[in-house]
Write a protein that binds this DNA or RNA. Sequence first.
DNA 1: GCGGACTGCTTACCT
DNA 2: ACAGGTAAGCAGTCCGCG
Length: 894
Amino acid sequence: MTKKHLDDYFQKPETAHEESTESLTRTARKEGKKEIEPISKTPKNLPPSYFVSATYNGEKRAACINLYEPKSEKIYFWYDNTGHKPYLLTNLSPIELEKIGRVTSHPGLDHFEPVEKYDSLQDCNVTLTKVVTKDPLAIGGRPRGCLRDIIPEGYPKIGGETEAKVWEAAIRYYQCYIYDRQLAPGMLYKIENGNLIPVRDESSEQIVDKICSLFPGEPEEALRNIETWARLLEYPAPNFRRVAMDIEVFTPPLEIEGKLTFSVPDPREAAYQVICVSLWGSDGKKRTLLLKRAGVREGIEKLPPDVSVEYFDSEERLILEVFKALRDYPFVITFNGDDFDFRYLAHRAQNLGIRRGQIPIEVRRRVCLLESGVHIDLYKFFFNRSLQVYAFSRKYLDVSLNEVGKAIIGLAKLELTKPFNELSYGELAQYCMRDSEITLKLTTFDDNLVMKLILAITRISRMPMEDVSRQGVSRWIRNFLQFEHRRRNMLIPNTADILAVKGKTATKAVIKGKKYKGAIVVKPVPGVHFNVAVMDFASLYPSLIKVWNLGYQTIRCSHPECKSNTIPDTPHWVCTKYRALESLLIGSLRDLRVSWYKPKAKDKTLPKEMRSWYKVIQSALKVILNASYGVFGAATFDLYCPPVAEATAAIGRHSITQISNKARELGIQVIYGDTDSIFLKNPTPEQIDSLAQWSGKELKMELAVDKLYRYALFSSRKKNYLGVSADGSVDVKGLTGKKRHIPVFIKKAFNEMNEQLALVKSPAEFDGAKKRIADIVRNRYLKLKKHEWQQLDDLAFHVVLGEAPEHYKKTTPQHVKAARILKSKGYKPKAGDLISFVKVLKDPHVKPVQLASGSEIDIEKYVGHLRSTFDQVLDALGLDFEEIIGLTKLERFM
DNA sequence: GCGGACTGCTTACCT
DNA sequence: ACAGGTAAGCAGTCCGCG
């Protein structure tokens, strides 16, 4: 890599305006062979196509845009023809830069160019120098000799006056290109006479106007911003022609404790044969490619008739056939393809002597990309915590194909009944096909929700689809903020500079080690409360960021006259002269979601496809908005600004305190509240109305009824309650009985109890329910005492191993003890694994469930867990666990 | 040397 | 690589005790 690029420096630079009219592929050109079919053309003209991703092409030394043409369903390339080049910014003048030999002699240097930028941290215009290079690697990305390191190191501090600094030097080149040309990834572009031209969507203009008319009070700048977002979000998604792929690799069997297991082959070594590959296309094509091996039984009668079964005598030909398919489809979906399937295939191909040019996979350190299309690795996508919680409402708890498949589309992996290498061709194909079936269906369910979600975030974040599907929400947010900086010719500040000017926090966190004080939780009033209304602020934190004009630029600004514009409960103030970018952008996104996309997603009068698109948008916005406050408190975020996060939380506390005071003033009893919500006991519609009115008027915040509970049940614990809605649905929050590590044996009883609680309609009906609940608890207790469980698994606790078992130094929690026992038996528990263990009488008091037997169970421990699980509810019902299980008060003291 | 009180660690949850 | 706040269970330590 390094060598190749060093060589590049000594070549004559190509003219950047060179037309790319030839229709040979990049691969074919490199190899000088014509036998490979063209990956894709770079045409002079192309009908409207979706901008799906962007890269840098090292050979052409130009940005490359991947366009998906929805009629032919193919990807085409367009290379920059504007002469755009990589650059960084520095405060050194060209004259000062000329004095640094390591800069002027740098082979990647192109030229210097003065630029004016607005520095929002200092509130002044600055003249900087654009250091333009021939190659992005000249700026950064290599261990030594990059200009972004050379400039600050190399400048002799004359008189100690000027400190040489660089800006915008860590932005990926293709992002820089998107920012500078103000491109809209995910939107339509056409190629006309070799030029890239945005395609305006006339049909959405009316609807965009309508959206804007929803916000008559907004200032012009905010309206223009809303308009921009609306244009991006209204345009529909294409059909993404795609294929899901899964591979199976021969694995030598490993014997542990007399049981056969298999270790996962190392994709870097790729030492074993690829024995089966399955391809499941969105076009209905289902293929399974099998390697002929000695002594393997046929058994393909088990496969559905529409699967094409293809046998190969040579592994090399099998792999080449797979590569052909990978070139054919514009989008390829895998589950962990970055770290396994693609990595393995590429290295295996190399091992087999397949020429580099014939391998369409670009293997990078952490990802594997396709030369001719877009690779989406669903493992990374579903691993994303924000998506897990806010887009898929914690439906899956473990990120494995099996768990995600079961939870989201109700399709599990096939279970193997015998060792891998004893499978017949049919069984192997069946197993492998199922994996690619789940993988594809994870992108097709709910009217292609996943593909659309990626597209929507691509548009909001201004990032390529590959990056959107792999990176976290903080990158999405960072990128659209950087884009808007460029649009306004604002200097993108360095993280260290923001921190130096505005780094200090002033409040004390409740939790040791945290940076600032967070939200308030109101102590609940224990007991059962009928007719409870839950009111909450619509997206509290984004609303506050909008209403209070929060951003790194505006918090603690330098203007003396702003200092009186204080933030409650902190020593901070906010600018009164300028609007913060974060406030503007997050504010618009919030407004769009609350006033347009959320209602539209529920609007039954809309056609189905339209409503489904609106659902996608509102869900994408939800994910982004929910993280929009947290990122300012995250040191890894480029615009990290602790006082912004601190101020947001402080105003949040102020808001909920004000609103509960007002509620009490109106004569409503507040029985609970957490962060942005208050639980009101038996309020009248008038009281609810006046509270909402007051909030809008005094706090400038929307407060609305979120839930109406027939009754709610509280213990004295915070973040612990149970609410029953009018339709009998039960919300369980925080109770131990719902936590995933609790044994099924206890969970079952807990769920039975909830069924009883769901039936209660009036206070009078509680007596009967209490009796039945007492029965449930007593029965469980007796079953435990009599060792009556269906299987030992039902008694297992399931706890995630946060670190590798040997990594725990300070304490040894029980699940780690269990993991170490497993390790000593030859298993290889690693970080992220779910450890299942039971509590036993003998010494370490835990045992992995696989190794335990019923007779060694510590029954009293389980009674204790049963008790503590139920106490949370029994307290509120006025029931007593010990009385239920039949101990008299006297016995308890003995 | 023992046991209760206390602190800290770890995980899972809530908003 | 969004944040802080809360609950639970256990591990480990401290402290008093003739």
